[in-house]
Write a protein that binds this DNA or RNA. Structure first.
Lengths: 347, 347
DNA sequence: ATGAAAGCGCTAACAC
DNA sequence: GTGTTAGCGCTTTCAT
């Protein structure tokens, strides 16, 4: 292990000078700099990150907590975070909770030991609300994708309310008047907002209130919700389904098709997220698109900015940043057929 | 920042004793241990990871290099790695190269500065062959998914050769005799082996040698390959396509369908990997399944074991571990139709 | 069973 | 423009 002292000795200068030649934090004469540089070269010197971390009190590493990296939504988010972080000289430690409590505890221990300078938290499960603050201590924190009711940290989320409205408008525009909404279990704010946006818009149109189902945030959750509502696609039953994420929407389509209900012939389905699988599905999924990559990027930049600022700066109001969403119309939605409900003309 | 000295003072013992009470590396009387523990509690003490790292010379962090986390193959791999790592007390720093050279350089700097104890490397691009060793120094390294010709590191890969054979056997068994193989650009060992396995089996059956195309390891790559081979699905043209990964297979199917060629009616397609999108595609994709999660798990365990052993142990022969693959038959393959080539009976 | 003291390798006042 | 020196907070001989 070649240390800064070795380099200093070889170049005939002090360790301080080597340090400054490396960091540029103070002037070093060209002659000396050249000697130092060749000494480093010859010795194959690379500064020890551990020593630097201890000396400066920071690690230039941020933690990213996501429920499951195999979910392509979180993979995209991670991509955005990592790309932004690396551009600013930060590395990211990936922490996937997998909804496992033991793991969360391990992560918290790591976090509290200041192995990371800050944290980006995408809560996938009903988050540890008020506990969060206690567990994290005063570690800089940014929430992304999912807001945590109690927490006083900046958050970056998609416009879930508007997304729900977009889905409702699209379906109403096609002539649908009876809908089933599939929400996520566990009181996730994002799910609640999507449902709220949908209902608000739907009911404002004068259509009858949508049916409500809920389930796990997975394909199986969507499948099961349809199982519990055999009236979907039946005479006088709902002709439209809005699922609060694509996985559930895909599951719903699968269950519908299995029950012999044509999509979109008999029932239209719209999802939320715009994951790759939705583009390959049959029919291709109409969905509300989130710019997940950007969500991750913005969250990372915010955290890094907070880390650079004086800690005092952190008492800023915990602002909530909401990013726009858009509707991507594909083949899983169509006008309802006249034999199963009167088509109503409307704006 | 409460340090070990604070705890020691409060408990009326020396820092040494606090350290040992924490690590259990030597006996501490119950009385003292109790005092130390409550002192830690009251002060909210958490040991500084940076200080520990510097003192013990290790970080308990491993690096994972993958080309792109958004590719679900690598997301699965990452999941396997991370799960195994965390169970053994290691964290993982995610490094996505995105085929960007600047980033690779940043990562190498981090790695050489001993920010990580070891490295798991899934080379997605034509890897930095012989350079690799030089760049990494003597950092413990494990290769996964893709082997690097020069490198003298243990590797964990799927049985690509057998996978290629499986695909060929399946297609031959259905009665196909003319095939197009879509390989990946860039001389990736995995692609070469898959192609080799396929050809070997194909030609051994007496069928005419398959046509060969190649392209990027992406959906677009598969699409373009079909574009360059309009004879696929035409009279006397190939009735089967084997793409060396699912993304390319999906692209090929899309291009075929766009050209009015029915899959599997007129042309059968088999992929490799078994990514989620293949299960949603229409027709659902027949493919060679890799146990990616296990690949990642095994690689992580091997690295961690190497880190625990005496460094001397590392001179072991750089073993190559190959994991079995299996064929998942779905709807993208069928017997060739008689009007486009005589059906031949076989085995 | 417990302590004193010397590092681990770097940074940053504070001198000159 | 360069050097001295004192930490950063922990682990770990070596004593007792």
């Amino acid at each position: 292990m070649v240390s800064i002292a070795d380099v200093a000795a070889r170049a005939g200068v002090s360790p301080t000078t080597v340090s400054h030649a490396l960091s540029g934090k103070r002037k070093v004469s060209d002659r000396v700099r050249a000697r130092v540089e060749s000494a480093m070269q010859e010795l194959g010197y690379v500064p020890s990150r551990s020593a630097q971390n201890l000396a400066i009190g920071r690690t230039r590493v941020v933690g990213l907590i996501v429920p499951d990296i195999r979910n392509s939504f979180f993979a995209d988010l991670t991509h955005g975070v990592e790309a932004a972080a690396i551009r600013h000289g930060y590395n990211v430690i990936l922490c996937t909770t997998g909804f496992d409590h033991a793991r969360e505890v391990d992560y918290l221990a790591m976090i509290r030991s200041r192995a990371v300078d800050g944290l980006i938290y995408a809560a996938g499960a009903p988050p540890t609300n008020s506990q969060l603050g206690a567990l994290l201590g005063d570690l800089p924190l940014v929430l992304v994708d999912e807001e945590v009711p109690g927490a006083s940290a900046p958050s970056f989320v998609s416009d879930n309310l508007a997304g729900g409205r977009l889905a409702a408008e699209h379906l109403l525009g096609l002539g649908h008047r009876r809908a089933l909404v599939i929400a996520a279990d566990g009181g996730l704010v994002s799910s609640d907002l999507r449902v709220a946006g949908f209902r608000e818009c739907w009911e404002a149109s004068g259509a009858e209130p949508p049916l409500l189902a809920s389930g796990a945030f997975t394909e199986e959750g969507g499948r099961a919700a349809i199982g519990r509502h055999p009236e979907v696609g039946a005479a006088d039953g709902p002709t439209a389904v809005f699922a609060v994420n694509d996985l559930m929407a895909l599951g719903a389509i699968g269950a519908l098709q299995q029950a012999g209900v044509d999509v979109p012939g008999r029932v239209s389905v719209v999802g939320f997220d715009d994951i790759p699988a939705g583009r390959y599905a049959h029919p291709r999924l109409t969905t509300v698109r989130q710019d997940v990559d950007e969500l991750g990027r913005r969250a990372a930049l915010a955290l890094i900015a907070a880390l650079a600022d004086e800690p005092a700066e952190r008492t800023d109001q915990p602002d909530r940043h909401v990013l726009p969403v858009s509707l991507t119309v594909r083949q899983s939605t169509a006008a309802p057929t006249t034999d199963q409900g009167k088509v109503v003309n409307r704006g």
